[in-house]
């Protein structure tokens, strides 16, 4: 951990000016007591410079980070300090505000990431001017993370495509989509055990006995999101945020969501079933190449999010 002096407090600067003046006065008037006072001030100066540096060298800092975060939302780095001086600490990457530290500490250090991406290391800054508060020293600690910190984009609220606008049924943790994807295939005779609502009354009237609708199997509708991050950085961030908003909305509506992105190692196609995973996938996404267009599960509705929106028909997918 490298310790450096960061600056003088304002009273310290004034003190230096006064001391310079007094030294001049001392030399001209030849006052012995003034030399005593100036020696004491020199002692204060040495202590004020040396002790913060020594105190920081003594300190032991441990930092651990969560595995994911979102742009603009505070995340907490776990900070553990042993033998730390009285001072302040803040997260540097991702950035956060100063928090006070009184001695040993084991607590969360709040940071608000401001950029999407994957961080393999975080850094924390510890600053002190103990005990006199005249000269500030700071030390920056950088920690390599065992699990990289994936910071997802700030989701922009997005509307689902009309074909997938689904209602909700009941309350609880997940909304269950009404099975709007079911198609009526035909009618058949009522068999004991069939649900009453399946009765097709018109057919029954025509046939004279109970007839029920014959349905396609229920399918959970799925949405595929092609994320195209090519182009200038601001556009790419906007795209990522839109994709995040759309994916979250879809997840909330109970759809199966597949993200098609490009990561550093290549194209990635995969389902996401929790908001955390949406953030992670989009954190890792980069704009190096065109996003892949498959493979997608059967019956998947595809949306492309990116700088331009041509609508190619991907293999295995279908258009509304």
């Amino acid at each position: 951990m490298s310790v450096r002096l960061t600056g003088l407090s304002r009273p310290a600067v004034a003190l230096l000016a006064v001391v310079a003046g007094l030294y001049g006065v001392g030399r001209t008037t030849g006052s012995g007591w003034l030399m005593v006072i100036l020696s004491a001030v020199a002692g204060v100066g040495v202590v004020a410079v040396a002790l913060p540096v020594l105190a920081l060298r003594r300190a032991q800092v441990e930092v651990s980070a969560p595995q994911d975060g979102t742009v603009g939302r505070p995340l907490e780095l776990q900070l553990r300090l042993h033998r730390a001086p009285i001072g302040k600490a803040r997260a540097v990457a991702p950035a956060g505000e100063w928090f006070r530290v009184l001695g040993a500490v084991d607590g969360p250090l709040r940071a608000v990431p401001d950029a999407r991406g994957v961080l393999s290391r975080v850094s924390v800054e510890l600053s002190t001017a103990t005990p006199l508060g005249l000269v500030w020293a700071a030390a920056r600690v950088t920690v390599e993370l065992e699990h990289p910190l994936e910071i997802g984009p700030q989701p922009l609220d997005a509307a689902l495509p009309p074909a997938l606008q689904l209602g909700t049924d009941g309350d609880g943790d997940r909304r269950r989509p009404v099975l709007a994807g079911d198609l009526v295939r035909g009618v058949r005779v009522y068999a004991p055990g069939d649900a009453r609502k399946l009765v097709d009354w018109r057919a029954t009237a025509r046939a004279g006995e109970l007839m029920v609708k014959d349905l396609e199997g229920p399918t959970t509708p799925s949405l595929g999101i092609l994320v195209d991050l090519r182009g200038p950085a601001t556009t790419a961030e906007q795209t990522a945020s839109e994709a995040a908003g759309l994916a979250l909305r879809a997840l909330g509506a109970g759809l199966l969501v597949t993200l098609l992105t490009v990561e550093r190692e290549g194209a990635v196609v995969g389902t996401v079933d929790r908001p955390v995973e949406v953030g992670r996938r989009l954190a890792r996404a980069v704009g190096g190449a065109a996003p892949p267009d498959g493979p997608l599960p059967a019956g998947c509705y595809v949306v492309r999010v990116g700088p331009s929106r041509p609508d190619p028909v991907p293999a295995g997918g279908r258009q509304p």
């Binding site: 009522y190 004991p192 055990g193 069939d194 649900a195 009453r196 109970l210």
Partner: peptide, 10 residues
């Protein structure tokens, strides 16, 4: 689910 809850039979 119907096998859990029961059905209406005509």
């Amino acid at each position: 689910p119907a096998e859990l809850t029961g059905v209406s039979v005509f």
